[in-house]
Design a protein around this nucleic acid. Sequence first.
DNA 1: CTGAAAGCGCTTACAG
DNA 2: CTGAAAGCGCTTACAG
Lengths: 352, 352
Amino acid sequence: MSKAPSPKPLPQIRSTADFARHVGLARTTVSRVLNGQPGLKPKTIERVQAAMEATGFTPNAYALHLKGKRTATVGICMEDLLTPPAVRKLAALQRLLRERNFASLIEVLDPGHSRRVVRHFLSMRVDAVVFIGHFIEEEIAQRIAELSAHGTPHLVIDHAGITGANTVSLDRARGMVAVVEHLLALGHSTFGLLALTSLARTAQERMVGVRAALSAHGVDFEACTQTRDHLHVRSGDFDYGRALAATFAAEKKRPTAFLALNDEIAVGAIHGFQAAGLRVPQDVSVTGFNNQDICAMATPGLTSVDQQISPTAAAAAELLLAQFNQPVRRKPLLRTISPQLIVRGSTGPARR
Amino acid sequence: MSKAPSPKPLPQIRSTADFARHVGLARTTVSRVLNGQPGLKPKTIERVQAAMEATGFTPNAYALHLKGKRTATVGICMEDLLTPPAVRKLAALQRLLRERNFASLIEVLDPGHSRRVVRHFLSMRVDAVVFIGHFIEEEIAQRIAELSAHGTPHLVIDHAGITGANTVSLDRARGMVAVVEHLLALGHSTFGLLALTSLARTAQERMVGVRAALSAHGVDFEACTQTRDHLHVRSGDFDYGRALAATFAAEKKRPTAFLALNDEIAVGAIHGFQAAGLRVPQDVSVTGFNNQDICAMATPGLTSVDQQISPTAAAAAELLLAQFNQPVRRKPLLRTISPQLIVRGSTGPARR
DNA sequence: CTGAAAGCGCTTACAG
DNA sequence: CTGAAAGCGCTTACAG
């Protein structure tokens, strides 16, 4: 490490008044330049800009917005920052907002803390509040009602079905329809469900798709699906998937196709089956959900359902802008994103 | 979807003046309650708090901080939001800051845009600016100099060696020393380097460790290390790793141990070797770096180097607080985190 | 282009 | 507990 450079002792400029004095102009004139107002000599503009560069002066945003200017800030509530698909949506949305000169305040929303976080956002006079992930339904419905009462736009990404909420969500049922039809086409007629019996909303949405697809093809749901979810504890998804697969592998009559709640569980299941001497996809087919990076890294590659991050973020940005332009609405704005099945090596023809 | 609940028509309360009128108290009194000042009747406090609940009034943060109160905000510049270890550090640090009642502004720093982002943070009068990731060195050094001139605390996480920067960084060289010693102990004496010849600082740091460990054990670096990095284009890391492995696999005399720049490349390499009919670790050992989730999901599990996220975040929070308490410093604050080798199935005794 | 003034929503002495 | 007042750093007419 080399030494720190001695910081140049800049004149302490803390306000436009200080700054105007430093440049030798009126405060009003400086303000005009800063706000790009017309009727100024090019020379004056240059002088101010040069002084900005030299001194690094930045007008106090807190004073600026107090005067009523839009804060151009969006508050984003994240379920957590450890779920890759959620973070990818965050990244994509933040990029779109940045392009439109919106800054974002990001907070992780621990259960029960949403009120505090949303109030902080409101005190920051955000132009909108976005929720990304899955939350406690009543809690968020409450927050949405408060935001609506305040006239603050909002948007929920991923968590469908919240009363009164403007929502962008993935059609998970449709994703599972695609999975089931893919497997039916490969000749499968018995299905193992991995973690799909969860009471979580996203699991239930998926189950709707599974049932619909099976019944549309004249297959009896009860007779041809099986689960062992209750036999293991879901601590880590990878291990849970492996344990579920181990259980199925030890049984004589087992399904030929396995549908997992997500990619981690699916990859765990592949490991579990392989460890038990079964081949994927020759003996059993396995599918995931989310199409994360790990799908490509599994052996064989994991057939999964892509969440379509870019279209999701684009729809989100669109719904936000729509609310900025026309804040008061009767009906919630709803947008559904269609997922896309990505077929890889983990699914193959059913074993006869 | 059910209908939106008709939002209760709250009286429009926009300021403490409105609010005080609504409660039937003086503005000053309300302000006292809000700031927890002494000498107030419990009844008054209750009345105000009840009204806060009922109306959802939140004092305007922009007016509040204008009066000179600390904004209790930290600006965080991220290299990107798609690198899992960086996001995990962000999540851990944000949690620690939140516990101390600091909010965080998070921005992705595209190359060349750091000035704009940092100026935005300064206009928001953040208490500190944090950089997480690897950046263009001169660019960030420049920003740090500006922040220092402004008297704004800063911290760089991960990018070691920036002139004058307060830094928390992983001792990557030490991590590689651990890897090399582990492999030497297993009897390996020839090493394939996967993507480690990159000019990126983090790669060079790792190479320092490799060289040091080898020479400490009397092994000639030139004679016993090989690379094929130049033969392929690094577009995706997984594919790059696979391609590099395929090249090595096709050669007769090849190293018995392979050290990858990161986990993705290592997992790709495992796939590449296995596709070529080599067994891991019986024929070749492979190591990664970062200890991401995918290490457990690979077959066999990937021996890797853990970044020690929690200690990193803790050190970061500590250095920030130190600066809040004593803003002006001569020497940059430096903290080094020791990584930890995690041994899994991808490394085994060298083949005779 | 300048300068004096009002106002944004808050806090903080200060006198009652 | 109340009320009038000053001030934080900005913008925005307004008269010169």
